[in-house]
Nucleic acid binder design. Structure first.
Lengths: 406, 406
DNA sequence: CGATTTTGTTCGTAATTTGAACAAATCCGG
DNA sequence: CCGGATTTGTTCAAATTACGAACAAAATCG
């Protein structure tokens, strides 16, 4: 029972049915390719005539192409259709605290090239550097006319409509309009998004199981901070002021360590990489001190995971405590949003086989129903570059999104 | 960028544009009545011809009626249109732990009659009692042919599609199909929903400010349990297994009192009416003991509020601690979902003027942005019967909901 | 080779928006 | 009291689209 937004609605015109059906058709091709026109007609329960008409439109504008005919047990051999992805490219950019990643990939998320450089925290400087690198990257890979846009992923809150970064503490950005600056500098269409939401979008649009992908899920990122991208009813949740998804500051213990946000005992103060590291080093978590300690000891979360894997008890214990607290946080998500599944991204996924039992124990104890306790947790390894895939999805998904109606 | 559900989608037919525009028009009349055809045409940015055609359809099926013409500075006087509500009735039923409430009201939520009886926990017995009472109620108020359906609100998890009550601990119901039983017994269309979600639906469809009503908000109920109805993007969040909204079990303190759910220090164990009562009585909260204590002392949360209002320090202190913990819980909702506003329902709204400052203090301390900290909290007094209004909305809203497309 | 089956196309029909012309109702100035 | 001006509401032809049936194309089978 969705309510119609009578402030800003889209009325149906003569061509609305066609737009809707065209979009349904395109999505069916995307999720079932290769597929024939006759198959599409059966799935949509429309006549083959309409499919012919819609497909010729999609072929004309380059969204879909005809492959080969294939064998059939009887009758005329069907002509298979595919979504055109391999020569429609996107530049994905992932701006992180220390380094910035640049990836050229096609609409399906398949990577073509990647480069990386030290993050320039000054927005104008970053845009200038990207303005140098992007044309060079496109030239090197003979992709000059094929780029459909730039997806920019940022560690912080983003207003998707205005394109402004509201607050990115790791970069020290507040109310920065890097999207329009980059668009003006490069001439490309630029879309910007917060990192956990981008990761969720990548799962939604470029995930393994195309059609099976759930319409209600959560992507939890555990790195310097802890955040989440929420998907409800096939759509990302941004909230009223684009600040939804901050699960890092769910309270765990009012007497716990002080968090960056000023409260005590936030989930993030227990499970962020910094928190795990400081626990391993035997110190109470405290933002300022821990950063210093980290710089001195020159140890990273990956090292702790490696040491745990090689049998070091202290490393293993530090990680297991992180796992237990993460379990509490995930249980909150499960009880409040009841997602079909939860993806977990971040460095700690490398230790998933070790941490998973502890996490599930906590969830089993805290989930309110047995079905909720069985919510699948799916680690998303850093090796698949989830944020860069998310950046790609920002551009690629627009072509497949449902038309806005009513 | 909503994703099309390719498992179950609705393709656009020849009549889809008309359905969409018809529904937009009906909602515009609902939110701006009285309104003329010419005004509607301007708002929808369509020709007046189309409005004439759509309105005559809506009048023919009784959704809309013509009122009177009104004065105009120049030109022909416009004929005002209204949504027909006063002779389209709904029976709302609110099943609570001790008593069940029955209300006859019209489509706008205006109450016509109400009765109440001791809750019969046996589902078959309850249905039998309702089967006796409903025809009598309709007869008494000369509403026999005018009832459009029955809305049933239950304190527990409900699968809206199958109509089964999955788990209602207060009633001891597990997997009960009371909806179909009641439909068979009465011959009416019956819709069933969980209480906090129903309260959210009431705000969405029957709220004060018709069009201003936000599309992202949360309705938090504080009574025997603590739950929430979530609305995201103009649609209610039910989750993958219809168990979303259980905010009562976010952790507050791992060393806190034991909760009914088995964990320790849940929000509910600090802020439910039972928790507040046991705090007032000077006892550690513990489900079993507290219930006994409550029966012995014969005191209710309303009494505690009255005593606080008359200046009793102990009552005031007990309520203020509840307020502080509730603030923590609301901050979790604000940080994770960033709603435009939060409604709070339950007995403690009677003490809102006393509790509000404490709640806001906590939220100001814990909200991650200043805009989030300013999220309006709106008490919804029990005197407006939010759950019964929700029951009404279950039936009335279907007429106005956006058509399912793509 | 003809019958059968399946795929893909074409085309007339029905439903709908769209926009313009038209009728209705009111005010205002002479 | 009448004719223009103005606004509301209706009617109707044109354009766009889904729909469904007929048809052509391409393959298999006996």
């Amino acid at each position: 029972m969705r309510k119609i937004n009578t402030r800003s609605f889209v009325r149906a015109t003569r061509s609305t049915p066609r737009e809707i059906n065209r979009q349904i058709l395109l999505n069916l091709v995307r999720e079932h390719q290769p597929i024939s026109r006759a198959d599409l007609a059966r799935r949509m329960r429309v006549g083959r005539g309409m499919v012919t008409s819609l497909v010729s439109e999609l072929i004309a504008d380059g969204s879909v192409y005809e492959g080969t005919t294939v064998d059939a047990p009887r009758g005329r051999r069907p002509m298979m259709l595919h979504v055109r992805t391999h020569d429609r490219l996107v530049i994905g950019i992932d701006v992180r605290f220390s380094r910035t990643y640049l990836m050229l990939s096609d609409f399906s998320g398949t990577p073509i090239a990647m480069e990386t450089f030290d993050t320039i925290v000054d927005p104008a400087g970053l845009v200038a550097e990207l303005r140098r690198r992007i044309p060079r990257l496109l030239k090197t890979y003979k992709a000059v006319g094929k780029c459909n846009g730039i997806g920019l992923v940022v560690p912080g809150m983003v207003d998707r409509r205005t394109g402004r970064v509201l607050n990115a503490p790791q970069l020290g950005w507040r109310d920065v309009d890097v999207r329009d600056q980059l668009a003006a500098a490069t001439g490309f269409d630029v879309q910007i998004e917060n990192a956990p939401i981008a990761c969720a979008l990548a799962q939604m649009w470029l995930g393994q199981r195309g059609g099976d992908a759930p319409r209600d899920f959560v992507y939890v990122t555990v790195s310097d901070g802890v955040g989440a991208g929420l998907v409800v009813n096939g759509e990302v949740v941004r909230g009223h002021n684009s600040t939804a998804g901050e699960f890092g500051h769910v309270p765990i213990d009012p007497h716990g360590p002080t968090c960056l946000c000023g409260s005590r005992g936030c989930l993030e103060a227990y499970t962020s990489n910094l928190a795990t590291l400081s626990r391993y080093l035997g110190h109470e978590f405290s933002p300022a001190e821990t950063r210093e300690l980290l710089n001195e000891s020159r140890i990273s979360i990956t090292d702790v995971i490696a040491r745990a894997r090689s049998g070091e008890a202290r490393a293993s214990a530090a990680l297991h405590e992180t796992a237990r607290h993460l379990g509490v946080g995930l249980a909150v998500i499960i009880n409040t949003l009841n997602p079909a599944q939860i993806f977990v991204g971040g460095e700690i996924t490398e230790a998933w086989d070790q941490l998973s039992p502890a996490i599930h124990d906590i969830i089993n104890a805290r989930a309110l129903t047995s079905t909720a306790a069985a919510t699948p947790l799916i680690p998303d390894p850093a090796s698949s570059y989830p944020r860069l895939r998310g950046a790609t999805a920002l551009i690629a998904a627009r072509e497949f999104a449902a038309p806005q109606v009513a």
